[in-house]
Write a protein that binds this DNA or RNA. Sequence first.
DNA 1: CGAGACTTTGACCGTAGTCAATTTATGTGG
DNA 2: CCACATAAATTGACTACGGTCAAAGTCTCG
Lengths: 247, 247
Amino acid sequence: MAASGSVGIPSGPRAASYVDLREHSQIDVKRARTFWRNVERFSAGAAIADFGDTNGRRIIVVSGWVSEFRVLPDGRRQIFSFLLPGDTISLGRTGRSGHRGLMAVTNVEIADAAALAATPDASGATALVEALQDHEERLLDHMVRIGRLTAKERVLNLLLELHDRLNAIGLVKEGAFRLPLTQEMFADALGLSVVHINRTLQQLRREGLIVVRRGSVTLSQRHKLAALASYQPSCRLGQPSGEHLVA
Amino acid sequence: MAASGSVGIPSGPRAASYVDLREHSQIDVKRARTFWRNVERFSAGAAIADFGDTNGRRIIVVSGWVSEFRVLPDGRRQIFSFLLPGDTISLGRTGRSGHRGLMAVTNVEIADAAALAATPDASGATALVEALQDHEERLLDHMVRIGRLTAKERVLNLLLELHDRLNAIGLVKEGAFRLPLTQEMFADALGLSVVHINRTLQQLRREGLIVVRRGSVTLSQRHKLAALASYQPSCRLGQPSGEHLVA
DNA sequence: CGAGACTTTGACCGTAGTCAATTTATGTGG
DNA sequence: CCACATAAATTGACTACGGTCAAAGTCTCG
């Protein structure tokens, strides 16, 4: 493992936990300072590349949305996942040109996960490993989506996942959350054309299954939607856990 | 990391390297014995489940093919990847019912990667980490396949990947290799219907792009095929490396 | 030889893609 | 605050890739 050393992620509900830094002791305050010194900012649309020596490096999203994708020589694009605040990924080895691109979907703050090192206990390392497992888990979920679900199911299924993940970090208010994605990004994530995404969304709206207004989405009948979309929530997501640095 | 301890994988060309055990010193012979005592066998079609306490456990395929998949409540199935001799995966945490199934495609020998522990140097651990990275890499490749390629491209692209991986472990003779998959498995891997897979294969044969005979496939014009399928070979695969325990 | 799994083929259908034009935001500079 | 430029969303008409259903043909193996 390259990015050795444990990380300042207390155990407990995954995604947002790094955020509890400030309610820790003096030692943690120092750690927090180091942490914040190492935060890099990217504005919406910017490519997140050349993050130093990427090989084996791990980063954590502090705020904003990031997309992970690949572009084919002829321009087709596949988005693998959306990274939300609290998510970590390992950048993997360098080389291999057409490998994996990262793009800031919104304005974004990103930190080197290693900057959160030096936890007294092992909880940090554990949480990090779990975060990485979650990431792979989500890749599989997404593969099922694009491989075996219909357009309607794909859209609902992805919306449900995003809802749950955002909910776990306290970014859902009464079933509504901000969705900073263009329909094109949605299409590239779900392996569909923009036009078809649009029509599918229209249909879902007409059927009263979702509400989309000014960049935010409301899912009201979660149970019904989950059934419609063969959605099985991930077991790791907890409840929103009170304090959050990033609102 | 759960399955701690390094593994007896000498560095060098990835997949088949564990195989060089026997040309090592006395110490390695002892290690090899332990290794072989821990090999489990499964016959074609068998589910590979309840592999003891799966949580965080890592296994390595010694011989045969394994498929990694998920089945939806309504019976639709998505195959995530095919594991070939030398491939390792971490089983991930337990729980989460509809998670990830493993099935023996052929007769299979599987070992616990931890049984290969206690390498003098760190090369074993390194190789293992790289194997896991490769696995994730391949998941992404596969996502592009089912998300953004046409049926024809998907089939060719997957065949090319399998060719290259098998070639790296010496299982390709003059462009030909054994392909122990039914068309149904192919379909479930590529997100297509069996019928369409069949027709696509027919077409590829008629166009003289591939040769399929009695369970084995020949790819002759690799360069042309790669272009047709937007296939970019992974950089990690080396040449076949002489000795192989499993033929 | 028969049973069952796998492959192949035909006919038909429907989901989703493509192309192209229009409308609706979102900005940005004057 | 408006005019213009650009990005994003929407709609229509048409196409085609791939799915479904059903039947027939092959292969394997006990």
